[in-house]
């Protein structure tokens, strides 16, 4: 399966970046070492490719009818009730729960779908201005300062993860700016992750004791998510596209 080769890739990259970091630290000055522990990154230090953030969704623990991850995301990022003029087709959706049912077997599941934070995101490829980009630590974002609102990324995204804002917004959250005429999507709660907190959806899911979402560093083999991925099978949605997504699913 491509899953295993992807994971092997991750492990290899992990090793290489670690090795690079160690030599880098050694080169700075004798007696001065960069710490590579899991502690908080200082506010003035840039994110690096030594980490790759990801989420494992265990759909076996996803309760049908539960929408807590979605409401937590709305609350944190200020979407959901912010667009009174837009019709339902036009309203933004950063994360949604999807009910699926196998047509021949009847097997049914509920699962959340949001930006899959691909390693090679089609939205980033097609964006004419580079507003759509992948941060060094794997989080795919829209730089709304240079987004011109052409919506080509929405055409290219295989997951329908992106939304366009169809009207003027007011009272946005300071940590999640968003506005008319630009495209937006799940940011993996980058404002929280940068402060060593977990995304709002993951927090809400564990607060309810569902624990269907595990967030962590895919490159850190000791992280909970890496261990869980190594121990049991998981898949990417539309794995055929070979995008090596940061969001992985179990039980579908």
């Amino acid at each position: 399966m491509s899953e295993s080769s992807n994971l092997a890739d991750i492990a290899r990259r992990n090793f290489l970046t670690r090795a690079g970091a160690v030599t880098g630290a050694a080169a700075i000055a004798p007696g001065v070492f960069l710490s590579v522990t899991a502690s908080a990154r200082p506010a003035d230090e840039a994110v690096t490719a030594r980490k790759r953030w990801g989420i494992l969704v265990d759909t076996n623990k996803c309760a049908s009818g539960c929408n807590d991850c979605v409401t937590a995301c709305e609350e944190e990022n200020g979407w959901g009730h912010s667009e009174p003029e837009s019709n339902p087709e036009q309203k933004a959706h950063w994360i949604r729960t999807v009910d699926i049912r196998n047509k021949s077997t009847g097997f049914a599941k509920t699962l959340p779908i949001m930006c899959q934070h691909c390693e090679t995101p089609p939205c980033v490829d097609v964006c004419p201005t580079g507003a759509s980009f992948r941060r060094a630590d794997g989080i795919v974002l829209v730089d709304k300062h240079i987004c011109i609102g052409c919506r080509y990324c929405m055409m290219a995204c295989p997951y329908k993860a992106r939304s366009f804002v169809h009207e003027d917004l007011h009272d946005q959250k300071p940590w999640a700016p968003r506005g008319k005429g630009t495209v937006e999507s799940c940011t993996m709660c980058v404002q929280r992750v940068d402060k060593d907190r977990i995304p709002a959806c993951v927090e809400a899911c564990s607060a309810d004791n569902h624990n269907a979402l595990i967030f962590g560093d895919l490159y850190d083999e000791n992280s909970e998510i890496s261990k869980a991925l190594k121990a049991q099978d998981s898949v990417e949605i539309r794995g055929d596209l070979g995008l090596n997504t940061g969001i992985r699913y179990r039980g579908i």
Binding site: R41, A43, D44, E45, A46, V47, F133, R135, A136, D137, L141, D143, H145, P174, W175, V190, Q191, D194, K195
Partner: peptide, 20 residues
């Protein structure tokens, strides 16, 4: 803006939120 957006640097001195 560019440092925060692209590199995750979240110092506060020149943060627009702190201006506000």
């Amino acid at each position: 803006r560019d440092e925060t957006m692209h590199e995750g640097i979240r110092t506060r001195q020149y943060s627009l939120e702190e201006c506000v």
